[in-house]
Design a protein around this nucleic acid. Structure first.
Lengths: 197, 197
DNA sequence: CATCAAAACGGATGCTGCCTCCGTATGCAT
DNA sequence: ATGCATACGGAGGCAGCATCCGTTTTGATG
C-alpha cells in the first residue's frame, strides 16, 4: 500500500475517459438542443452505452450540474473582477448580467434551476449552486443598499428570480429589443430613485 | 335542402359529445398535471380513442387553446369591469393581475404561450389570444401614460412579458412571499415616480 | 322504417426516449 | 500471467406520441 492508495486502488483509465467524453458531448447537445436533449443520443455519440451514462450521472440534473461546473468557474472568475469595482451599484448590475448569461447557457436551463432553488431535496445536484448564487446576490444587494443605491425592500432572492426570468424569456426566443426594455424596467424597480439635489 | 343546411348536413351528435368530454377531461388533467399531461390518458379517461382526440385537436396547443377559451371569456368579462375604473394606473394594475392569473391557470402554460407570442406561425392556435392580450395591455399602458402614471419608455409588450414571467415563476412552485416582492419590484419599475408636491 | 353514404370512431401500430438489469469485458494489482 | 473488482453496454420493459385504416355510428332520404 503506497502513498496515494489510501482510498482503494487507482481509478481506472476508461472511467475518466468515458466521463470526459460524456461531458464534452453532453455540453454540445445541451447547447444545440437545450436541456431536454435525448440522453440516449448523447450516450451514443459519446461512444458509450446508456448504462454507462446513467452510472456516471444518475439523473439528467446530475449531468447538467457536471456540465455546468465549467461555467460556474467562469462565474467565480468574473466575481473577483466585479468585486474590484468601486461602485457597488455597478457591481450589482454586472453581477446580475453575469448570472443571466449563466442561466442562458442552455435553452430550458432556468426550469430545472428554479426547481432546485425551491426544493429542499439536498440530493438535487443543482441545489447547491443555486443557494450559492442567491447568497452571493444578497451580498451585492446589501453593499449597494449601504451605499443608498438600492431600495431597502429588495432581497438578493428577488433579483435572483428576476435574472432567472429574463434568462427564461431569452430562452423562449424573444428578440433582444423587448428583452432589453424588460431589463431596464427591472433595474428601475430595484434602484433607489435619484435623490438628486 | 331546408333553411339551416346551407353548409352540409347537421353536425353529428357524437362529435359534440366527444368534444365536450375531451375538453372537460383535458381541463381537469391540465389543472392537475400541467400542460405536459399525457394526452393518451386524457383520451382514455374521456372514453375515446387517441385517434378521436387527435382528429378534434391536431396538436397539444389546439387542445390547450380550446380549453383556454372558457378562461379567455372570464378575462374579457373582467375587462369590462376594469374599464369602469377612474384611475388608469389602478386599471393597469388590475389588468396585469388578471393576466397573471390567466397565465397561471395551468402549470407550464407560460412556455407554449411565449412560443406562440414570438412565432409568426399563424397556424399556432395560441398566437391569436396572445396578440390580443398584448394589444389590450398596450391600451392600458397608454392610458396610464397619458395620466402621467407610467414611464414613457414602457410598452404593453414589456408588461406582457413581465406578467408571463411572474406566472412562470409561480408555476415553478415558488412561495407567495418572494413572488409578491417581485411584483412590487416590477411595479416600481414601470410606475412614474411620484412627483409629489 | 329501411337503406345508404358520409362521417367519425378507436385501437393496433411504429416510433422515440427513459431507465434498469445483468452477463461480459476490461484493466489494475500481485 | 492470473485473479478479481470494477466498469461496460446493450437488450428489454415501459410510457407517450401520432397515424392509419377497417369498422361502426349517424343523419338523410324515400
Amino acid at each position: 500500500m503506497s502513498a496515494g492508495e489510501l482510498r482503494g486502488r487507482k481509478p481506472r483509465a476508461d472511467v475518466q475517459r468515458n466521463r470526459a467524453a460524456l461531458l464534452e458531448t453532453a455540453q454540445r447537445h445541451f447547447l444545440q438542443h437545450g436541456v431536454g436533449t435525448s440522453l440516449e443520443a448523447v450516450a451514443k455519440e459519446a461512444g458509450v452505452g446508456p448504462g454507462t451514462l446513467y452510472r456516471h450521472f444518475p439523473t439528467r440534473e446530475a449531468l447538467l450540474a457536471a456540465v455546468l461546473q465549467t461555467r460556474s468557474e467562469e462565474l467565480v472568475a468574473r466575481q473577483t473582477d466585479i468585486e474590484r469595482l468601486d461602485d457597488p451599484a455597478e457591481a450589482l448590475e454586472q453581477w446580475l448580467r453575469a448570472m443571466e448569461e449563466y442561466f442562458s447557457a442552455f435553452s430550458g436551463l432556468p426550469d430545472p434551476l428554479m426547481a432546485a432553488a425551491r426544493a429542499q431535496e439536498p440530493d438535487n445536484p443543482l441545489t447547491i449552486p443555486c443557494d450559492i448564487l442567491i447568497a452571493a446576490t444578497d451580498q451585492y444587494v446589501r453593499a449597494a443598499q449601504l451605499a443608498g443605491r438600492v431600495r431597502a425592500s429588495v432581497r438578493g432572492q428577488d433579483l435572483f428570480l428576476a435574472a432567472c426570468s429574463v434568462a427564461w424569456i431569452k430562452g423562449t426566443g424573444t428578440e433582444e429589443e423587448p428583452l432589453d426594455r424588460l431589463r431596464t424596467l427591472i433595474a428601475s424597480g430595484y434602484r433607489e430613485p435619484d435623490t438628486q439635489a
